[in-house]
Amino acid sequence: MTRLAVPKTYKLYIGGKFPRSESGRVYPVTTKQGDFLANAAKASRKDARHAVLAARAAVSGWAGTTAYNRAQVLYRIAELLEGRRAQFIDEITASEGSSPQAAAAQVDEAIDRWVWYAGWADKYVQVAGNANPVSGPFFNLSVPEPTGVVAIVAPQAGGSLLGLVSAVAPALVAGNTVVVIANEAMPLSAISLSEVLATSDVPGGVLNVLTGSPAEIAPWLASHADVNALDLVGAGALDWVDLQIQAAETLKRVLPPENGPDAAAPSLHRITAFTETKTVWHTKALI
């Protein structure tokens, strides 16, 4: 007699906790063939606002960690992901309809991407910042700092885990906190990744994951006055021009949609896109 499996309830990830949607709504997640896999929480406007609140509250702590510490915390995600490799492969195989080999390749690449970005935490400031030789008796230094709260529409094509990681890791490594709308059709790996984060050293609120309809939630994030930046990498199928127009109200920094296999390709540019250069001048005594 085979054992009856215990299926998981997939919920949102907000402020380090796993709430259901306050709206009480769910939507069915299916395999490529249309077979039922799970009910995912369908996040509402209010969930999005809660997520922004949690992300805002986490900014000073996360941005205030030392770069070395932030690097280790992000590297730890890769370690934990490696340990749960099999679970992610199963989940991706089921929900994306890919072969176990392709799923494994995706998970491996996602792990490696965390490692790559983690290593940038204590370097991007050196690479993107500099001392300035001003004409006068002043010490003058420019350094990039995190922009604040970044809202991201994760890539909606296949490769749900890798797409999500590629979009959130560069924002997090700089010290931003993130509210991400997961892949709508394939949200399971995003929630499982949240479970990895919840048991890692990433403070609650640093990454907040919403599942549901990007078309419904993204406008609330684009127009939210406490969101500093908007990454529309996965918003190509939405009315993203309108989202950008809404973001202009509070002068958010916006990255446009990207399509194709190179979407959210790893780059330093993705890190610096959500940083602000601060230049500090200090007088030098005339001796």
Binding site: G236, D239, W240, V241, D242, I245, P256, P257, E258, N259, G260, P261, D262, A263
Partner: peptide
């Protein structure tokens, strides 16, 4: 890789 022609809302 950029998206197709943007929708103008």
């Amino acid at each position: 890789a950029r998206t197709d022609t943007p929708k103008i809302s």
